[in-house]
Design a protein around this nucleic acid. Structure first.
Lengths: 251, 251
DNA sequence: TTAGGCAGTATGTCCTATCAAGCGAACATA
DNA sequence: TATGTTCGCTTGATAGGACATACTGCCTAA
């Protein structure tokens, strides 16, 4: 009866006047607790009912929060048993961000050199990728991305021109996705293909490597929330400096 | 008042006696309707309330189904506007399956050649990757995967031995993930890294290509639903025959 | 003619409630 | 002692309601 209960002190402050949904506040709180070591890997959470009561929330709201955490791989639930923190650290799944953002968030200071820039009629392949009618115009440009003065990526992109205007100076100053987001684009999904190839003379000279060295290739087409194909591109990265890391979650 | 309403005939048969949850039946039904062309890209669905009424479901159940479809990128929702089918075709996101399964589902008939097989104490790197104590034993093997008689992938894996027993004959007959699933493993998530490299003499001879040709590399560690690191591996694929395709969904 | 506000509609959030199903441990029985 | 059954705990599924908020387009007033 007088059983000692080690409550996992989540110490979450739920702010009901905040515009942030309650379930999302819970998600953030638990994420912080896990990454901060308050909830060590393998530890079991209190059951959903108790947790909801502790935070003065309903069970569905609590469940919705935990659903997100399960989806992102931080928690594991088992009927009849309980919910526990997954032991391994989880990397954020591959997200819809540009290389520029990734590098900036990483503390590096990427620079961009615009090698070519045009605003012309799209060729057939581009029209197919972006689902544009004949005669439509697109921005077409190639960029060289360096970090710490070292070349890292050679990127060729095609962008539809009915969203926001793009010029060379803009591309030199910030990432493509930043520009498009500022132009009101809400990215929804992207199809991409990652492979490998051998550097040719042109690529090698720009990337400051030798012809025949390994390159990672990436082709991507991004779609926004209105269903428009916004951007397609073909990038190559120096294999010795770049690889794609991701976490897959089994639904 | 007498407005003609073009109801999108979903023709879903919801079987309440089925053990499959209602919301999942709805997910499958709408997926089928989209892929079957009944719901063409860009078409708008009826609102949640009406759809729920049409199928004799509650709105939360309907929403849960649509949530899944939004998450997987098939639908787009906009408050105050409605829900519509995303125009582009969506590939299934990269899933936790083995190459063997992927090829089999694709209609190909992959063959596996076991090049080496051992069951010994794990070295330090493997113990770190699988979080095993000193002295723990692991299965360690390399396999060559061919499809249509053509070599495609060279795979080296380490698997903990406290789950199911593995032998050479088994590996030659089916995929690793199939074996582990049969052994009771429920995979939850995996971290992987995709990059590129140049084929050395050993790899080139086995993959029937030339030294110096491009290879796609993949390193993966998979975790099951109890939080155990189950397997880790390092694979290389012929770049001219293989690339990783995936769809990223912005949450 | 045009700009602003307002109503209608759809999704977003949150709640209470109830039953089903899986799992584990305690308990009863042989 | 060993084994099988039952019971309680926990998550899973579904229902139905209430209110919030964002978007669209119409209507009105300047």
């Amino acid at each position: 009866m007088a059983m000692q209960k080690v409550a996992n002190q989540l110490n979450l402050n739920i702010d009901r006047s905040s515009p942030v949904p309650l379930y999302h506040q819970v998600v953030q709180g638990i994420e912080a607790a896990i990454h901060g070591g308050v909830l060590p890997p393998g530890s079991r959470l209190d059951n959903e009912i108790d947790l909801a009561a502790q935070l003065n929330l309903s069970r569905p709201t609590m469940r919705k929060a935990m659903d997100e955490l399960v989806r992102s791989g931080l928690l594991v639930r088992k009927r009849g048993v309980g919910t526990q923190v997954v032991s391994s650290q989880v990397r954020r799944p591959l997200e819809l961000s540009s290389l520029f953002d990734d590098l900036s968030n990483n503390g590096s200071k990427p620079t961009t050199e615009v090698l070519s820039f045009s605003h012309d009629e799209a060729d057939a392949a581009t029209r197919a990728a972006l689902q544009l009618p004949a005669g439509a115009k697109v921005y077409h440009f190639t960029r060289l991305r360096k970090v710490g003065g070292k070349p890292l990526a050679l990127m060729e992109n095609w962008v539809r021109d009915d969203i926001t205007s793009i010029d060379e100076a803009l591309l030199g100053a910030q990432g493509l996705y930043g520009i498009l987001r500022n132009g009101g684009v809400n990215f929804r999904l992207a199809s991409q293909r990652i492979g490998a190839m051998i550097a040719n003379d042109y690529q090698a000279s720009l990337l400051d490597t030798t012809p025949g060295s390994a390159l990672v290739t990436m082709e991507r087409t991004a779609v926004d929330d209105t269903g428009r194909q916004v951007e397609t591109g073909h990038h190559v990265y120096r294999a010795d400096s770049y690889s794609f890391e991701m976490t897959l979650v089994q639904r």
